[in-house]
Design a binder for these strands. Structure first.
Lengths: 100, 100
DNA sequence: GACCCAATATTGGTTAACCAATACTAATAT
DNA sequence: ATATTAGTATTGGTTAACCAATATTGGGTC
C-alpha cells in the first residue's frame, strides 16, 4: 500500500471501473486512463490498461471502432449485462456506504 | 476470477470493509467473517481475516477487548480518521455508481 | 517517402491479497 | 483434570493485478 493510511487501493476493480466508465460514454484507451486518473488520483500504466481492455474485448464485453489512431471502446449488450450484475454485487457489499 | 462474468472481485478491499463494518458495531473476528460473507457471498478464510485484523491493530486503527474466547474489535480514533479518508477516496471513484 | 508523435501493444518481473491446511488457546463440560 | 469445541493464529504457497520499460502501429506533416 503506497499510502499507509489508505485502506482502499482499488486493486481488482479496474475492469469494473472500465465497464462503468464506458457505460457513461464510449472512449479510447488513453481517455480511459485519464478518466481513471481523475477518479483514483493515479493513472494506470499502458501495461495495465491495455491488457485489461484486451481481456474485456475477448470476453465480448466491449468492442471498438477505429477512429483516427484511437480505438473508441463501447459496451456490448453482454458488457451491459455484466456491468449490471457487478453493480448489484457492488451495492450488496457497500450498500450502507453510499448513504453515509 | 472465479465467475467469468464478475468484473469486481473486491480484492484489496478487505481492510476497508473491516473498518467500515466495525464503524457500524464492534465485533469479533469470526463475526466479521460472517458479516463479510453476508455482503460478498464468500467467507474470508482465517488466513485472510486474522492477518488483516492484526495489521490494522498494529497500525493502531483498531483495538480489542477479550470477551470470553473472543476478541471484540472496535475502531480507534485513528481508525475512524482512516476510514473517513478512505470513504472519501472511495466516493470520489464511485460517486456516480451510488446514484444508479 | 522520411520523419515525428500519439496511441496502442507487449514483455518480464514484482508484490501483496488471498487460500488451504495446520496449530494454538481458552472457556466450558463431563 | 481431561476432552471438546469455538475462536484465534500461523505457515507456505499461489495467483493475478499491476508497473516500468520497451516495441509497434498508424496518422499527420514537411
Amino acid at each position: 500500500m503506497q499510502n499507509n493510511d489508505e485502506t482502499c487501493d482499488m486493486r481488482g476493480f479496474l475492469s469494473f471501473l472500465i465497464l462503468w466508465i464506458l457505460s457513461i460514454r464510449p472512449m479510447s484507451g488513453s481517455e480511459m486512463a485519464s478518466e481513471i486518473e481523475k477518479r483514483k488520483g493515479i493513472k494506470p500504466n499502458p501495461g495495465t490498461i491495455y491488457p485489461a481492455l484486451a481481456e474485456l474485448a475477448e470476453k465480448k464485453a466491449i468492442t471498438f471502432k477505429n477512429q483516427g489512431k484511437k480505438k473508441v471502446y463501447s459496451l456490448t449488450p453482454k458488457g451491459k449485462e455484466m456491468l449490471k450484475h457487478s453493480v448489484n454485487h457492488f451495492c450488496k457489499i457497500f450498500y450502507d456506504i453510499l448513504s453515509k
